[in-house]
Nucleic acid binder design. Structure first.
Lengths: 337, 337
DNA sequence: GTGAAAGCGCTAACAC
DNA sequence: GTGTTAGCGCTTTCAC
């Protein structure tokens, strides 16, 4: 039996109507529990639908209702990264409460791929777009150019565009990390950061730098390393830092991937430096890693909430929700210089 | 400007055609690069589309082409669990290669919720369903009842139904864990397992049990604990095991969540028992945890591949792909009794 | 090479 | 309370 055997084609509403001996519209009314259907008629229609195994064709409904679907698109980095999957989890749960479906796509941290995905999603007539931008300007997402589809930015603010966004308090979190290490007596503190072109990394670097300057620690940037994007590079970078003549006595890593790399290196050292990492992670409590934590599931949830408000017709100026970030001491950040 | 302002409605093909001064069908042909369009005409149509910011309405196309969409649905547990998000990541990447989109939904580990989601997905006319079943029978997914939509089962085989599936070598992996601990001289080995009603947990339990019996270790089930579903219960269960008069000298946990719970408890013990966990996890190398590892991204990828084959018309009997599971010694599993 | 007409499956508007 | 007609935006047939 070939896969496109017409015998397995799903029944349509008019087949249900025919079986029930009513008109198309009456069947529609009955199945959508609209008013003005006799109890007995409704009964008969539902029985016919049941018997045929009828399922509404959502495509047809949505086309008729205005060419818009029940889907919300999420464009982010790889879901294999726990940061993005937590966001997806929070968004999906919130959307499901409103009968909306989450469609995910991986931008491969690549701007042109991201633009492609936006086009793909718009063609599928998503109701809203949630984007963790991988960089670059987002002017092309101007409201009028995308048919008025609401867009919410996650983790990084939009560039060249005003739109709803949900951000982490990157600057505050990084400042807290710096102040914690300074208070612990550290002066030679290394900052190991990811791609400096992303706004979130920049904010973390800036927050850290501000705290350092305020503490009268001006040449801290001897130990500044940015654009470290993968774990292997992080490991090499940190090894090199520790092999300096005057090695840092503490390290601040600005995301979970870099923190993981750091842990691999520090585990092999007999007298490791202090470590604070941005982003909490599974087992951080077991390993005893001090982190700047924030609720990533909440980030996704809030983004979905903003999107739903817009879908429901809420207008008004763009809103920004800030997710707090706070330091959790667990040992690694409390090692003395 | 209200959100439903008609001014922001996306332009349609006939508007493009009108602007280009050609018929609807010619515009369609030009934009789909079909043959029999004069070079100059195509030029004009593309210019008009560009000028209006035209985007194809995928809903309409798919309705006309037979009521089937470009989406593949994935129903699994919470994406916040790295197991499921790795599966989603692998599936999404593979589907994207074929122009398909992944729609995810969380079954909350709940059978009736899962049936709901299947209905929702079928209404949206997904091209295929990928399911990590949360339990129960799947007779309702019989091919003819769901309009011939291909279904692929992940991690757990279908019940009451023959269908494609991608499984982990649960039994072999569990056996390897048991044999490793036995070879290390352990006899009192605890088995801490999740919900025994799921086939994957059952296979892990069975593989372990078989190895125990073969080793002449018949009353091993003194230390058998099943239906431990959350980390807190796992922690309590393991604490209780270690407080027995004759405590186990080794523990085998049958998934990543339980392993995490075990690590929390063992970290506080001065002389911890040996530990082997099913499922690899981030930082397992840093923590030094011996695990039974398998490629979860590959699991998602293979499932997507099977689904795509069916979508492309491949018929034939159901296929089963088995993802190998192998033990990686990292220290915790090599502790002597 | 191009176009007119029909129709995918459904819902909205307006009869009766 | 029920039915008829039209049409969402597109592709398919068939004519020119």
């Amino acid at each position: 039996m070939p896969a496109d055997d017409p015998a397995v084609r799903l029944p349509t509403l008019s087949q249900v109507a025919a079986l029930a001996g009513v008109s198309l519209k009456t069947a529609s009314r009955a199945l959508n529990s609209e008013p003005n259907v006799a109890e007995e008629t409704g009964q008969r229609v539902r029985a016919a639908a049941e018997q045929l195994g009828y399922r509404l064709n959502g495509l047809a409904r949505e086309l008729r209702r205005g060419g818009t679907s029940a889907m919300v698109g999420l464009i982010s980095g790889d879901l294999a990264n726990p940061f993005y999957s937590a966001v997806a989890s929070g968004a999906e749960r919130e959307l499901r409460r409103h009968g909306l479906l989450l469609v995910t796509a991986n931008n491969d941290e690549n701007v042109s791929q991201e633009r492609n995905l936006v086009d793909v999603f718009l063609e599928r007539r998503v109701r809203a777009l949630l984007i963790v931008p991988s960089g670059g300007g987002q002017e092309y997402l101007a409201r009028d150019d995308i048919g008025g589809v609401p867009v919410v930015f996650l983790d990084r603010p939009p560039q060249g565009l005003a739109a709803d966004s949900v951000l982490i308090d990157n600057e505050g979190g990084a400042r807290a990390a710096a102040e914690h290490l300074l208070a612990g007596g550290h002066r030679r503190i290394a900052l190991v950061a990811d791609l400096a072109r992303t706004a979130s990394q920049r904010a973390r670097i800036d927050g850290f730098a501000a705290a350092m300057r305020r503490a009268g620690n001006p040449d801290w940037d001897r130990y500044l390393r940015t654009d470290i994007h993968d774990a292997a590079t992080a490991e090499r970078t940190i090894s090199a830092l520790l092999d300096l003549d005057e090695p840092p006595t503490a390290i601040f890593t600005t995301n979970n991937r870099l923190t993981t790399g750091a842990l691999r290196i520090l585990a092999r050292r007999s007298r490791p430096p202090a470590l604070v990492g941005f982003d909490d992670f599974e087992l951080a409590d077991v390993v005893g890693t001090t982190v700047v934590a924030h609720d990533m599931v909440a980030l996704g949830r809030e983004a979905a909430r903003l999107a739903f408000a817009r879908i429901s017709g809420h207008s008004g100026p763009p809103e920004t929700v800030v997710i707090p970030a706070s330091l959790i001491p667990r040992g690694s950040g409390e090692i003395a210089p």
